[in-house]
Each structure stands twice: as structure tokens, then as C-alpha cells.
Design a protein around this nucleic acid. Structure first.
Length: 613
DNA sequence: CTGGGGAGGGGGCCC
DNA sequence: CGGGCCCCCTCCCCA
């Protein structure tokens, strides 16, 4: 009997006779058969370790984002911050654990302290003048949001900082963006200078500033960067980047231009969009190196250098400002503690750069999400989805959009224009797709049918919503069931591999469902290959019943678009239940805990089916 | 729970 | 090649 924690509050109890064998060294045939045990819960791969004898690992993709978000909140408020990074006067409260998790440098730094007096804990300050404040800010934001926001002009700073701190993924991404190639030669002068300004760390209790150039072996050779001019800002994010969790820096990022009130200039530049709507030319000056509507450059200028709350009880600013300033290149270091403006830096880099010719624009891979963007000129549009840049503002209501065509459609609300009239009724629509949906009402066509309950919908997204809900799941669990022989397709005579056991189930209980309405949400993007074994349908069925037995807690699983069950070897559990009907090992014994009276018949049905077998 | 509207995003076509 | 325009899909929100 196992207790599986679901969403921290839902317990799924499974029984297995294998429980008694755990650790006993016995290896039954089932143990051999169950080698790779995976199943899919609505698109999420769930691993059941055979060695763990039925333990199920259910991933919660949002968990990491939530944790990061909370950590970022703590960073913003200075809560639990036990490390302050400084760069030329700017202070960045942070958490040692986070930095150690992100940075090989800090990992080595703090790891070396393990067992030492200061290892776990005292407040400490780490002077990182070798990393430009903007770059350090960006790297911290990356650490806490999985999103790296960096203006293209600051890409090299970030690259250098990432290399110095051993944040390899960021360094790689920056290199990709910069189009660098790994240089097999020795360290460049830049790297050598950087070594002189290696991160320094000042334990809180110490009076002076102890310089501890403790670079580890993670150090990567600095590439000989070929400078080229890039006018766009780039935001690097992990695929699951929680962009919605702003850091102080990201707050400022988000303040441009989407939430930033339009400047009077912008208002003048965007007088009356009207029918001609969001012509971006009214807002920006393309090709001038300027950014849309006060974009990255504007952001960088307004980016608060000391936006972070300063919980640092002691000041090392003067020391940090005066040290190592000569060690970096002029672009980075400048002559004072105040970083050179991005505009100046951009000009500097542009002056140095040789102007690399951009590659073909179709298709292009997004440097942030690695997605391939088809179509010429579509990448900048796509990039705005990462940066949150919304250059196109409605002159009527102030709402901003990332695309002018969206603004144009939006303006129809103000102008009353509804260019898509229904030929059968006076209805008119803003979107062509709305008209398309509307026409299906006239025709009565409901082409989107649920393969399980056969309810038809006029809109595909409504069908998907319906299938994501658990109302249909209940029906699924109560379907009359057949054996796995129904996997045999009568039409082609061969064994059909359904994309998931639920398909098989639905196929079993009904032969009339639309071929395009598979349970994968209509997208046909079932994660992972279809790897059904002869017993999978049974396993999937039992898993559904297990879900059903969640009773009121089952709703917590609602929202998963799919329920894929792969190799879920739960038959043992079922058999155990039969062997011990009503015993303490039976799920039925725990069914009352969930007090879902409507599901009891499922269990009864299950027993009846077992009797039939 | 469902129907409808709006918005975000991607792709195709054209200039 | 970049941008405009359009279509399509999907998601979210509201009644």
C-alpha cells in the first residue's frame, strides 16, 4: 500500500502485493516485465519506478516556477537573503542557495565552505565588479525567473558574466545569439583581465574587504567575440520560463512599454489609429537603431540600478567602486561607478563591430524558446512575445498590443467596424474566425464530437474544453468495458496502437467517434510514442478508476489536457483488491475517505468485471 | 457546463 | 528580406 502525494493534498492509495516483496530480492515475472513503466497523465509523463515497486512520480511542471516566483519575491523584499552581490556600487540581495544552484562559481565557492565556519550561514557580501551591473542584474533575474532579459548591446557583458560565474546555459545562449564560435586558442586578453577582477566575496563579519579570487575549474575560455550590431533586445528564457514573475529588473522591463504610460511624444506620434490603426511607423522609427516605443533602450536608461532593497547592513560601496575598475574594458567599466549608458555602450560596440550579415530570415529559430519561426520577418514579432514589448497602443483606450494587426482588429471595437457579416442574420463579427464559428450555428453543424460522451460542439476549442473537464472522465470510467482484444482493429485486421489507452477505451465502447477527435486535445501531439502493451488497456482502465476514486479530490487533476497511461502496471493492485476484497489493502477501504458516493458503483463494477473474468 | 467574444500567437501570402 | 494583412488555432473570460 502506497500513499502517493498528489498536489500536496490528494492521496492516492494503491495496493500491490509487490509491496511485500519490496527489498526482498525476489523478482517475479511481473517485475521483469515492468521494466520501463511510464504512463501519461494528461500529457505529463509519470514515471513509475519498477524498482520502487509501484511508486508513481507525478510531475508538476508549475512547481519549479512557483518556487522560483516565491524566491524572487523573497529576493525583492530582501527576505531570507543571505548573500549580497555588489557590482560597482549596485547591490543585489540574493540567496546563496539559489546562486549556488545556478552558478558553478558560487557552487564551488560555497561548496568549499562546507564544513567551514561560514559554510551554512552568515550573511556575506560578494563583490563582483568584474561583472557589469546590468549583466549581473540580468543574470540574477535569470536565476530567479529562468528568463534572461538582456539588451543586445549588453549581450557581451552578460556573456562575460555568465562565463565568469559559470552559468553555462546563459553563456551558450549568448554565444549563440552573438554567433560566436569557440576559439580553441588560449585565453584572450579579455579573459585575463577578467581573471584579475574575479569575483570577490566579503564575509559579513570581516572588517576589511577580503579578496578571494576563487575561480574554479568551470572557467570557460572566453571566446573572441566578433562584434556586430544588433538593434533588438533579446530576452532569453528557459522553455518554462515564468515570465509572469517579475524581478525588480523585470519589473522595470515590464514597465516598458506595455505598462508604461505613453509619453506625450508617443501620444503625438500615435494620434488616431482609426482604420489605419496601429501603423507602427507612427510610433517608431524603424531602422534607426531606436527601439519600438521606447523599447529596450528606454528600458535600460530607466532601469534602476539600486532598485533592490538594501538589507546589507554594511557598506562596501566605496571599496567596490574603487577596486578593479581598471581591469575591465572601457566599455564595461567606464571611469566611474556609474555604468556607461547602454546607448553609449551600444555605440561603442557598434563602432568596434564589423557588422555581421544576418542570416536568412526564413525560417529562424528563436534564441529564447528555440522554436522555429517560419516566415520572413516573423522572428521580431515572435520575440515580442518573450519581451512583453507592446509597441502598438490603442489611441482610444490605451491598450497595447504586440502586433499592429491585433491593434487593428482591436480598433474595430471602437470604430464599430465589424467586417465579417453573417449572410444569414444581421450578426456581424470582428474576426473571420468568429464568423466561421457563427456560421456553424446556422448550419447546425457540430462537427466536433466528444469521442467519449458523443456530445457535439460547434467549436473545436469547446470540445477541447469539454474534454479537459472531468465530466467526461466520469463517463469514461463507467463505460461498459471489454477486454484488450478490442485493440484489434476490425478494419485493417491488425493491432491498432491507440494513442493512449483512453482512446482504446473509447474505441471499445463505441466505434463511432470522429477520427480527428483523439483525446490528445485535438492537436495530435501526444507526448511520447505510442507504446501500448496488451495489458495497457486494463491498466489504463484501472488508473481511470483510481482517478475516479479520488472523488472530490479528482478535480485537482482537472486541467490536464490528456490522460495518457502508459505501462501502468496496476493490475497487480486490482488483483490484490480481489484477493482481499474489503480488506485493509483494498482501495475500497479508503474510498470512503474521499466520500464520493457517485463513484462507488465504479468499484462495484470493477469487482463485477473481475467476477466476469 | 456551455455559448460567445476577445485576445494572443503562428503561418501564409503578397508587396 | 522585412513588413502588412489575413487566416487560423488556442486560450481565457464572462454571461
Amino acid at each position: 500500500m502506497y500513499c502517493l502525494k498528489l498536489l500536496s493534498s490528494v492521496d492516492v492509495w494503491l495496493t500491490s502485493e509487490q509491496n511485500n516483496q519490496r527489498g526482498g530480492g525476489e523478482e517475479s515475472e511481473r517485475d521483469k516485465r515492468q521494466a520501463p513503466i511510464f504512463f501519461w497523465v494528461y500529457g505529463l509523463e509519470v514515471a513509475m519506478s519498477p524498482g520502487e515497486d509501484g511508486l508513481i512520480g507525478i510531475p508538476f511542471p508549475e512547481h519549479s516556477n512557483e518556487v522560483l516566483s516565491h524566491l524572487n519575491d523573497q529576493r525583492r523584499t530582501g527576505l531570507l537573503c543571505d548573500l549580497t552581490l555588489t557590482s560597482r556600487g549596485a547591490r543585489y540581495p540574493t540567496h546563496r542557495s539559489v546562486m549556488a544552484a545556478v552558478s558553478l562559481y558560487f557552487r564551488g565557492l560555497f561548496g568549499a565552505e562546507e564544513g567551514g565556519g561560514e559554510g551554512g550561514g552568515g550573511f556575506s557580501v560578494c563583490q563582483l565588479d568584474c561583472v557589469a551591473p546590468d549583466a549581473l542584474d540580468a543574470l540574477l533575474e535569470f536565476a530567479y525567473t529562468a528568463t534572461l532579459t538582456v539588451p543586445s548591446s549588453g549581450m557581451r557583458d552578460v556573456l562575460r558574466g555568465a562565463q565568469l560565474l559559470g552559468i553555462q546555459c546563459v553563456a551558450d545562449a549568448c554565444r549563440d545569439i552573438l554567433g560566436e564560435t569557440v576559439e580553441a586558442e588560449g585565453e584572450t586578453a579579455e579573459e585575463q583581465r577578467a581573471q584579475h577582477t574575479a569575483p570577490k566575496r566579503m564575509p559579513e563579519g570581516e572588517r576589511g574587504v577580503e579578496r578571494c579570487s576563487r575561480r574554479k575549474n568551470y572557467k570557460k575560455k572566453v571566446k573572441n567575440v566578433g562584434l556586430h550590431h544588433i538593434t533588438s533586445s533579446v530576452l532569453i528564457a528557459s522553455p518554462a520560463s515564468p515570465i509572469s514573475h517579475p524581478s525588480p529588473a523585470s519589473d522595470s522591463l515590464r514597465s516598458f512599454p506595455s505598462t508604461q504610460p505613453p509619453s506625450p511624444d508617443q501620444e503625438e506620434l500615435c494620434p488616431k489609429l482609426g482604420q489605419n490603426g496601429g501603423d507602427p511607423r507612427l510610433i517608431r522609427e524603424p531602422g534607426r537603431g531606436a527601439t519600438m516605443n521606447g523599447g529596450p533602450l528606454h528600458w535600460m536608461h530607466e532601469r534602476p540600478r539600486t532598485a533592490h532593497p538594501p538589507p546589507v547592513p554594511r557598506s562596501i560601496d566605496k571599496l567596490s567602486e574603487n577596486e578593479d575598475m581598471e581591469g575591465d574594458d572601457g566599455v564595461l567599466m567606464g571611469s566611474t561607478s556609474t555604468p556607461t549608458s547602454v546607448a553609449e555602450r551600444g555605440a561603442a560596440t557598434s563602432a568596434v563591430g564589423a557588422g555581421r550579415k544576418r542570416k536568412s530570415q526564413t525560417p529562424q529559430q528563436c534564441p529564447v524558446c528555440q522554436k522555429i519561426i517560419h516566415g520572413a520577418g516573423k522572428l521580431p514579432r515572435h520575440m515580442r512575445t518573450h519581451t512583453g514589448e507592446k509597441p502598438f497602443q490603442c489611441s482610444a483606450c490605451g491598450v497595447r498590443f504586440t502586433r499592429n494587426d491585433k491593434l487593428k482588429i482591436h480598433m474595430r471595437k471602437h470604430t464599430g467596424e465589424r467586417p465579417y457579416p453573417c449572410p444569414h442574420c444581421p450578426a456581424r463579427f470582428l474576426h473571420s474566425y468568429d464568423l466561421k464559428n457563427h456560421l456553424s450555428l446556422h448550419s447546425g453543424a457540430r462537427p466536433f464530437e466528444c469521442p467519449l460522451c458523443h456530445k457535439a460542439f460547434a467549436r473545436e476549442d469547446h470540445l477541447q474544453r469539454h474534454r479537459k473537464g472531468h465530466s467526461c472522465l466520469e463517463l469514461r470510467t463507467r463505460r461498459p468495458r471489454r477486454g484488450p482484444e478490442l485493440l484489434e482493429d476490425e478494419s485493417d485486421g491488425g493491432r491498432r496502437e491507440h494513442s493512449n489507452p483512453l482512446d482504446a477505451l473509447s474505441h471499445a465502447h463505441s466505434s463511432a467517434f470522429l477520427p480527428n477527435t483523439a483525446l490528445d486535445g485535438g492537436g495530435g501531439s501526444s507526448p511520447g510514442p505510442s507504446l501500448l502493451f496488451p495489458g495497457d488497456v486494463e491498466r489504463g482502465r484501472f488508473a481511470l478508476q483510481a482517478l475516479a476514486q479520488l472523488g472530490p479530490h479528482r478535480g485537482r487533476l482537472v486541467g490536464y489536457p490528456q490522460l495518457f497511461l502508459r505501462g501502468l502496471d496496476l493490475r497487480g493492485a486490482r488483483e490484490a483488491e480481489i484477493e482481499d476484497p474489503g480488506g485493509t489493502h483494498s482501495p475500497a477501504a479508503f474510498r470512503d475517505q474521499w466520500a464520493d458516493e457517485g463513484e462507488e458503483e465504479i468499484g462495484d463494477e470493477e469487482v463485477e468485471e473481475e467476477d466476469d473474468e
